[in-house]
C-alpha cells in the first residue's frame, strides 16, 4: 500500500461534490479521488495511494516509475487491489 502508483488522469467529474476522476495505470483503469490535487487536469500524471491522488508528477518521471513498479512481481496487484473492481462508482450520485 506504500509504493504509490503514478497514473494519467483520463477524466475528471464532480461526483456529488467530490472531485473524482478515472486514472489509467499503464492500461489498468481505476476511479480515483482527486480532491487533494485540485489543479490536476486530464492528461496530468499523479501519484496515487489507496485510491487518492496525493501529488503530481512530470510525465517522463511517471512513465519510468510505472515501468519500475510493473517490473516488481506482485507490486501492481498489491497497490491496485484485486482485478475486477475497477471503474466502480465511488459513493457517487446514484
Amino acid at each position: 500500500m506504500c509504493l504509490g502508483i503514478p497514473g494519467r488522469v483520463t477524466s475528471v467529474v464532480d461526483d456529488a461534490g467530490l472531485r473524482t476522476g478515472v486514472v489509467d495505470f499503464g492500461g489498468v483503469r481505476r476511479e480515483v479521488c482527486l480532491a487533494y490535487v485540485p489543479d490536476a487536469a486530464v492528461g496530468d500524471y499523479v501519484v496515487v495511494h489507496v485510491g487518492f491522488a496525493i501529488s503530481r508528477l512530470d510525465e517522463d518521471v511517471a512513465l519510468r516509475t510505472l515501468e519500475i513498479i510493473a517490473a516488481m512481481p506482485g507490486a501492481m496487484e498489491q497497490e491496485l487491489g484485486p482485478a475486477g473492481n475497477s471503474g466502480a462508482p465511488i459513493g457517487g450520485a446514484a
Binding site: M1, R30, V50, G51, G81, N85, A88, I90
Partner: peptide, 27 residues
C-alpha cells in the same frame, strides 16, 4: 483498494454495518 469502496458498499446496502480497517502511515 480504497476506503471509498467501503463507503460505496455502505451506501449501496444500508442493511449492512460496513467497517473499514484504517491502518497505515501518513500516506
Amino acid at each position: 483498494y480504497s476506503p471509498m469502496e467501503a463507503v460505496r458498499i455502505a451506501r449501496e446496502d444500508p442493511s449492512r454495518e460496513v467497517v473499514f480497517f484504517a491502518v497505515g502511515f501518513e500516506t
